[in-house]
Design a protein around this nucleic acid. Structure first.
Lengths: 324, 324
DNA sequence: ATGAAAGCGCTAACAC
DNA sequence: GTGTTAGCGCTTTCAT
């Protein structure tokens, strides 16, 4: 391994000088710069980033915690975060919790060990006390953690309103909402609340059905969809996440129901899933790229010592499909 | 910040002793261990991983390079790799290249700077010379790079055979294969070749249609699907990746074609996408978790200095749907 | 404009 | 068993 001092020796200068040309800092005469650069090329020198990190107490790495990478929505989020981080010259280390508390704990430990300069937290753990004594910058992605941790999310109340407006363009009598497990404290719950309120104000009956904790197979979405139609046979409007609604559409079709004539459906998230079936599902699209950019910008501001407040929100958008 | 020497001072011992208890190495009397542990707790000591990394010349981090995280297949792969790495106490830093050579180059640079102990490379770059002078361990994931870099992949020839067998259970006359861009050198091309050969041996006509480079929107899959039906109106069998076939199914339905009576389709990969539409698509499922585990095992063996050979393959599996 | 030297926080060889 | 000490490779202040 060739070190900075090897380059210095070869170039006949001091290590500090090499460091200066390496980082394009300070004043170095053109002549010595040339010598140093020649020596670096000659020796095929590559600086050790770890040594640099230790010296600077900064790793240019930020940790991203998500429930899963295989889920279409989180896959998109991860992609967008990685791109935004890359643009700011940060590396992303990814942790998928699979809704497992221990995984999350371990990851937060890594953060504490200063492997990373900051964290973007998008998982839904149950134990929020994990985050009590952390000095490093954290921002939460669509998730409440505590009052010290700023949160970036989509304007879900507005999303709920968009969904309600879509439903109200048709005659519905009974909306069923497929909601996440009640233990998950997410700002996203707001869209269900708002949509329910608006429809109830128009005399529409609203029921909810809850998804099991930590079940991610598509089969489990089909199970819930089937239960929905069994428990509420007169349902004529459904609101839920992309996968939930996709499964409902599948079940509805198998029962010979047509959308939007017999039943209306709005999917929340608007990932690929809603575009991919035999008909495009009407969806509320979360502005994933913008959310990711904002989250990245905010962690970095915190890393750089700026005081930031939050929360921050971005409005979602209606993607008109054929199901509502 | 509290350092190891602070703990040492507080406990009345030497830093090296603290290091020993920290790493559960060597022999430390129970009494001093207790003292040290008390001091660590008292001071709320958290070791710096960066310093440790520098000292050990090892980061316990490995880089994963994939074309995208938003794509269902790569999302699954990333998830599986992360889980496998986590189990081995490795962190994953993720790079999505978006088929962009510069991104990849930058990432390989990071590797050279020894930020990471190794790389799992699953992207399809065009410039393979990038990998010429790398000392760190690399394994390729479903991708040919060069003869020095071992490769892990699914047994695609077997996959092609499975697909052919599925088609041959029906009467087909004209298979169209949707293939990736010709610049991508992937072992996965084998399944197209093998399936084509087997069907041609039965007198079935085979054509191919090539996907554009670096187009990832679902819209682009629909475009290709539409072109397929325009160019080959008598097509009655289609083989392609999940998204390609999903788009074809959508177009076929819109033309009133029924599967498998009028047209047969087999999707390669077998992600969520094939389960999600209105009918399950018959698919060749890549054993993603096993591939990921194997890839992780092999990079780690290389990191630990073991000589490994490769290539390694794992057999795919037929998922019977209703489309063939 | 360049060099000497101290430090970033930890590990490990060696001495006691 | 425990302490001393010399690294790991880079950055940066302070002289010159």
């Amino acid at each position: 391994m060739v070190r900075i001092k090897d380059v210095a020796k070869a170039a006949g200068v001091a290590p500090s000088t090499v460091s200066l040309v390496l980082n394009k800092k300070g004043y170095v005469s053109v002549a010595t710069r040339k010598k140093v650069e020649a020596a670096m090329a000659e020796l095929n020198y590559i600086p050790s980033e770890v040594a640099r990190n230790l010296s600077l107490s900064r790793t240019n790495t930020i940790g991203v915690v998500m429930p899963s990478a295989a889920h279409p929505f989180f896959g998109e989020v991860i992609e967008a975060l990685e791109a935004a981080l890359y643009e700011q010259h940060y590396k992303m280390v990814l942790c998928c919790t699979h809704d497992n508390g221990e995984t999350e704990r371990n990851f937060v430990d890594m953060l504490k060990r200063r492997t990373m300069d900051g964290i973007i937290m998008g998982a839904h753990s149950l134990d929020v006390s994990l985050y009590d004594n952390i000095k490093q910058p954290i921002v939460a992605f669509d998730r409440f953690i505590n009052n010290d941790i700023p949160i970036i999310h989509c304007d879900h109340e507005y999303g709920g309103r968009l969904a309600a407006e879509a439903f109200l363009q048709h005659k519905c009598h009974h909306l069923v909402e497929i909601i996440g497990h009640h233990a998950v404290k997410s700002p996203a719950n707001a869209y269900h609340r708002v949509c329910a309120e608006l429809l109830q104000a128009h005399g529409i009956k609203v029921d909810t059905i809850e998804r099991p904790w930590n079940e991610v197979s598509y089969q489990s979405f089909l199970t819930v969809a089937n239960r929905l139609f069994t428990v509420y046979p007169d349902v004529d409007a459904i609101l839920g996440s992309d996968l939930s609604v996709s499964a409902c559409l599948q079940v509805a079709k198998s029962k010979g129901l047509r959308a939007p004539q017999d039943i209306r459906m709005v999917a929340y998230d608007g990932t690929l899933v809603t575009q991919m079936g035999l008909e495009p599902i009407t969806a509320i699209r979360q502005p994933v790229r913008d959310l990711a950019k904002l989250a990245v910008q905010k962690v970095i501001e915190r890393i750089e010592g700026k005081e930031i407040d939050g929360p921050w929100m971005i409005k979602p958008q209606l993607l008109r499909g054929t199901t509502c």
